[in-house]
């Protein structure tokens, strides 16, 4: 039944339907929903035919009735399967950034706008090798919205766009498969893969001078809160006293700023290797919650800390050498 699985694509190609430009959300209008019998449906049609022949041969009035009832059930199923898909709203959201090699998880929203409950909708990425979900079926009650997760492998750093999705269903009897192919505009930033065992940060040549490798635990006073400060460093007691948000400073901080510079890693390593190492250091620094700056060709970021800063730096590495 391999040819049967390929039939939808061949048919869509033959029909020459113009591809719909990608957008963040889509409504499965009637001209976007295709439907064809499944292998089980064809087998059922053969059964009906055989019952009809037997009825003609043996003059079985009730055999005729049965075969026509089964044929009617087939037609009704065609309509119901189509209805199970038509009119559905689908929206994809940008996925949270991932590191190269781990699958990106796109959240796809399915929303019923026409007041019909939908059952056993199957959402799959059409990309070859895209990881399928353990449980890819979604039920959407009438006028409700349900999410499903589409996992896509991220083999290379940079920006991953959501591949074309196929939403399909065979409910209620499995005799027909209705499907719709969607190109949804959703992306995911893929950071470089962190190097597994990098040399320690301090050993890197060309780091900014004056790094004090202290434990960083020595309290050194308070300063005003800047967005991005770790919650652990906020002086909650000061907040309770009513002096507003202030952040505790540690001794390591003013002692000097860490600069991660491209030329400090690049000459010895290939580009990708260098990016992996920088990624690892950024992660390490973020774990220790230390401020750092990034200086790579095309991107210079002043020292800072916090999730936004880390993300911006990792993005810069992800897009290194690529057009944004």
């Amino acid at each position: 039944m391999n040819w049967l699985a390929k039939l939808p694509d061949a048919l869509a190609h033959r029909l020459g339907r113009a591809p719909v430009p990608p957008s963040a959300n889509a409504r499965l209008t009637r001209e976007r929903v295709y439907i064809l019998p499944t292998a089980a449906g064809l087998l059922s049609a053969l059964t009906v035919l055989l019952i009809l022949l037997a009825s003609i041969n043996y003059g079985l009035g009730l055999g005729f009735a049965l075969s026509f009832l089964l044929a009617g059930i087939g037609v009704v199923t065609l309509v119901l399967t189509y209805r199970n898909l038509a009119g559905l709203h689908v929206r994809a959201c940008d996925a949270a950034p991932v590191f190269c090699g781990t699958p990106a998880a796109f959240i796809v929203d399915l929303h019923d706008g026409s007041g019909a409950a939908r059952h056993a909708l199957e959402v799959r990425a059409r990309l070859q090798g895209a990881a399928s979900l353990a449980d890819p079926y979604v039920d959407v009650p009438a006028h409700a919205e349900r999410q499903c997760l589409v996992r896509v492998d991220a083999p290379a750093r940079g920006t991953l766009t959501l591949p074309a999705l196929r939403v399909s269903t065979t409910f209620p009897l499995g005799l027909f498969r209705a499907w719709s192919d969607l190109d949804l505009a959703a992306r995911c930033t893929v950071y470089p893969r962190p190097e597994p065992r990098p040399p320690p940060l301090a050993s890197a040549p060309g780091l900014a001078p004056g790094i004090a490798r202290t434990s960083g635990d020595d309290f050194a006073g308070l300063r005003d809160y800047v967005p991005g400060d770790a919650p652990a460093h906020i002086a909650w007691t000061a907040l309770a006293r009513g002096s507003g948000l202030v952040t505790r400073r540690f001794q390591a901080e003013p002692a000097g700023q860490i600069w991660l510079r491209w030329h400090s890693v690049s000459p010895q390593l290939e580009t990708e290797q260098a990016l992996m190492r920088l990624t690892r250091w950024i992660l390490d620094l973020a774990t220790e919650d230390r401020a750092f700056g990034l200086d790579v060709p095309g991107c210079l970021r002043a020292p800072g800390r916090g999730r936004a800063h880390v993300h911006a730096c990792l993005c810069a590495l992800a897009c290194f050498g690529r057009r944004q």
Partner: peptide
Amino acid sequence: VIAGSALPLAALLFLLF
């Protein structure tokens, strides 16, 4: 619903097939 909706079709087919 499936069987009930199929009945009128089946009746037409029965009479006119």
